[in-house]
């Protein structure tokens, strides 16, 4: 059970307990879904639908474990189903620059960089995109990623290395 989960009564959860779980995890859930699906509407819908599935299957959740780790598997499966069913329905610019420049010329360049990065991420396999989203955008630690993906630390590191390498191949020619 994570520190944040301890504030919630998981042994006999009421709607208000589940509401707290949703509120504690909704942003992480949304951003991960956004990284996977590249669309605000799809990410919103997928993350909410995954919470509903989690609620309906709550009796299967091992209460001694971390809720988000369990929820993540539901979310990932749901996003994979969406990706399988809805091809090329990505909306532009689901990524933005952290510090937006006030110089209009820089701004144009930044917009181009965003577009290139979004296209490059789209070209990665789901596995590689997943690890980039978790590490680079969601800033998860290696240990958190091992728990979420249920793979050893070494695999996390090598997957990250090869994901960046492939992303680099696509990006370096254009951006750097």
């Amino acid at each position: 059970m994570s520190k944040s989960d301890k504030n919630v009564n998981l042994s006999n959860p009421q709607k208000s307990d589940f509401e707290n779980l949703v509120k504690m995890n909704m942003k992480k859930a949304y951003y991960i879904a956004l990284g996977f699906l590249g669309s605000h509407d799809l990410a919103m819908d997928a993350s909410q639908e995954a919470f509903i599935k989690a609620y309906k299957n709550f009796n299967k959740f091992d209460k001694s474990k971390n809720f988000f780790t369990w929820y993540y598997k539901i979310l990932k499966n749901h996003c994979l189903n969406i990706i399988r069913n809805i091809k090329n329905k990505k909306e532009d610019n689901y990524i933005e620059i952290k510090n937006i420049s006030e110089n209009p010329l820089d701004n144009i360049e930044q917009k181009e960089q965003i577009k290139l990065l979004e296209d490059a991420l789209e070209k990665l396999s789901f596995e590689k995109r997943e690890i980039i989203i978790l590490k680079e955008f969601e800033e998860k630690s290696y240990l958190e990623i091992t728990e979420l993906l249920n793979i050893p630390l070494g695999s996390v590191m090598s997957r990250l290395f090869y994901a960046r390498k492939e992303l680099g191949k696509i990006l370096l020619k254009e951006m750097i």
């Binding site: 949304y30 951003y31 956004l34 990284g35 605000h40 919103m44 610019n93 689901y94 990524i95 933005e96 620059i97 952290k98 510090n99 960089q113 965003i114 990065l117 980039i132 680079e136 955008f137 990006l171 951006m175 750097i176």
Partner: peptide, 10 residues
């Protein structure tokens, strides 16, 4: 490159 970017906030 990635460190300069973030996912868009709703």
């Amino acid at each position: 490159v990635l460190s300069k970017m973030k996912l868009k906030d709703p």
